[in-house]
Amino acid sequence: MTDPTNPGDIVVIGQRRRPGGSFPPPSGGGGGPGEDGGIHQNEVGQEPEDTVSPPDPCTDPDTALEWNADAAAAEAAEAFARKAAEQVPPEDLNTREWGAYLYRAGDGSIQVGPITSGPPFSLGGSGTVSLILGDFDPSAIVGSVHSHSAGNHLPSSGNDQAPGDIQHLTGLVAYSGNPSARLYIVAQNQGPAGFVPYNQINIYNQSTIQQARDSFTPGPEVNPDGTPCPGT
């Protein structure tokens, strides 16, 4: 008989919004009452106070990879916005797509590859961007991240002649040889009157991307203020 008072092991997967509305606190700590736990200023609602802190994901190589990949995606999103603002005239992520590979460096950290941008969006906010390798082998790739126009948090679907995000992820898995390669999409979110938009990050993998597209349900949201594990 199971003990109803013991919820079992709590597995922290990356820096993704919890069902209660908050993001995991920095470094994977439990975050007690009164702590903001790295929660983004636009979050709404609170989850019940934890009585047991979840294990620190940074102590396990597998969960640390998810944590650090999410942090790298957040870093890339900030870099996209910064580079867009540096354009003449200044732009934001609603002008064109920006993108980059995420890769594992020699020291084990997850880094953002060279950032590229595509042509201005066509009518309706459709765009494209081509990613380039830096000084690393394709086998080091753990995922990719690119931006969409406002409100477009879902992956795009295309075909062999005009590939979309679903085809990109399939190709990324084959190109890198990494079946766990991730796809992050960054797009400014929208809300009711008084809502302060920010660049929202959603994550997909091969087991979730088609279902997300078919159900019109964005993937888990990644903390835009995410930080890597200490020492990485």
Rank of each mutant, 00 (worst) to 15 (best):
A150D: 11
E66D: 15
R96I: 02
A64Y: 02
V44H: 06
S27G: 05
Y101S: 03
A84Y: 12
S180W: 11
E78N: 14
G231Q: 03
D50N: 12
R104Y: 03
T232M: 14
R18V: 03
E97R: 02
A76F: 06
S139Y: 09
G171E: 12
G113F: 05
N223G: 11
D3V: 00
D60V: 04
L65Q: 14
Q211H: 13
L123P: 01
F216K: 09
F80P: 02
P179A: 10
D62W: 01
G151V: 01
P24T: 09
G8I: 10
S144I: 00
P155R: 07
G194K: 07
P89K: 07
N178V: 06
D92M: 04
F216P: 01
T170M: 07
P24L: 11
Q167G: 09
Q87D: 07
G21N: 07
G21Q: 08
Q210R: 14
S176K: 02
E47G: 15
F80H: 07
W98E: 06
A193F: 03
P218F: 11
G177L: 04
Y175H: 11
L154T: 11
S207Q: 15
A69F: 02
F136V: 00
I132L: 13
A81G: 00
A100F: 04
V12W: 05
A74M: 09
A74L: 08
L131G: 04
D9M: 06
I203D: 08
S139H: 06
A76Q: 05
Q161H: 14
Q190D: 09
A69K: 14
R213I: 13
G191C: 08
S117A: 12
I110C: 07
P55D: 11
G34H: 07
G20F: 00
D9K: 11
F136A: 01
A105Y: 11
P228M: 10
S144K: 04
D62F: 06
D92Y: 07
K83E: 15
D56W: 00
D92T: 14
H40S: 12
R82A: 15
P155K: 08
P163Y: 05
S207C: 07
A73N: 08
S122L: 09
L172T: 00
I185E: 08
T95S: 10
S207M: 13
P55S: 11
N42I: 00
A77H: 03
H148I: 03
P120T: 08
